[in-house]
């Protein structure tokens, strides 16, 4: 437990946070997780089937957050299973590919679904991935993305036909950021390939999780929390541990930007 958390002299309080990744196929959800968990990257990663469950700790100055991550498959046919994964989640990463306009549309659908169906206090981060395929200067440019044609989703991250210097960005930072602010989402542009901004996303989420919602889930008691969550999962009663987050909606919105 404490092997990576042992930076401080006395054990910091530690708590579990459930996080779910959603987004269109081939936007790089698994690659983001792989970068966060193993600090590794695989070119042309094969699509996830079903969902993968991973854990990783995140050290904050005054506490340790243990992420329990559900990395879901983006294909349409798995969409019906998604509620199972976001039901008790305290946080969600909605990922789009900033070289692919259709993926932002899909991301917006996920955000809407989460706001409608998930725990009321859920912390949502909107993440535009594949920053490595863009030209740094373009991120400042205003809504340049009038491209409507949908590219065919080649599986694996970052296979855009243009050369290295070419800018494959189709969704401007401003556009996505405006949307994120409107919906009170955390917003980042990342590259799982270079690692840019990846840990920042998870740290920001960890910071945005209201401390009160973690109460009772620290130290040895975390097992009990898992059990409670487990019970909720089994029994379809998603109200079990939702009271905390609901009370803290305001706090969450406070850190969202």
């Amino acid at each position: 437990m404490a092997n990576t958390a042992g930076a401080g002299n006395q054990p910091k309080p530690s708590s579990s946070v459930k996080l779910v990744l959603l987004g269109e196929a081939a936007v790089g959800k698994s690659s983001l997780v792989l970068r966060f968990v193993n600090n590794d990257f695989q070119e042309n990663k094969e699509p996830t089937i079903g969902a993968a469950f991973l854990t990783q700790k995140c050290n904050l100055p005054n506490r340790t957050i243990k992420f329990e991550i559900w990395d879901t498959a983006g294909q349409e046919r798995f969409a019906s299973l998604a509620p199972m994964y976001y039901r008790n989640a305290q946080s969600a990463l909605v990922v789009y590919d900033l070289t692919k306009p259709s993926s932002l549309t899909k991301a917006k659908h996920w955000v809407a679904e989460l706001q409608r169906q998930a725990s009321p206090g859920i912390v949502i981060a909107l993440v535009g991935n594949k920053l490595d395929l863009t030209n740094p200067s373009s991120s400042t440019g205003d809504a340049t993305s009038a491209i409507s044609g949908e590219e065919d989703g080649a599986e694996g991250t970052g296979n855009v036909e243009e050369g290295d210097e070419a800018d494959a960005r189709k969704i401007s930072t401003a556009e996505a950021k405006a949307y994120a602010e409107e919906e009170s989402l955390l917003f980042f542009e990342t590259s799982a390939k270079t690692g840019a901004n990846v840990s920042e996303v998870f740290t920001a989420i960890a910071n945005a999780i209201p401390e009160t919602s973690l109460r009772g889930a620290r130290g040895a008691a975390s097992d009990a929390a898992t059990q409670a969550a487990l019970g909720g999962r089994r029994g379809d009663d998603s109200r079990v541990n939702l009271t905390g987050p609901r009370a803290e909606v305001g706090a969450k919105e406070g850190c969202a930007c």
């Binding site: 968990v37 193993n38 990663k45 996830t48 079903g50 969902a51 993968a52 469950f53 990395d71």
Partner: peptide, 10 residues
């Protein structure tokens, strides 16, 4: 797909 993803799968 599964092996490389790491973690546990469902």
């Amino acid at each position: 797909g599964i092996k490389a993803g790491g973690g546990e799968n469902w």
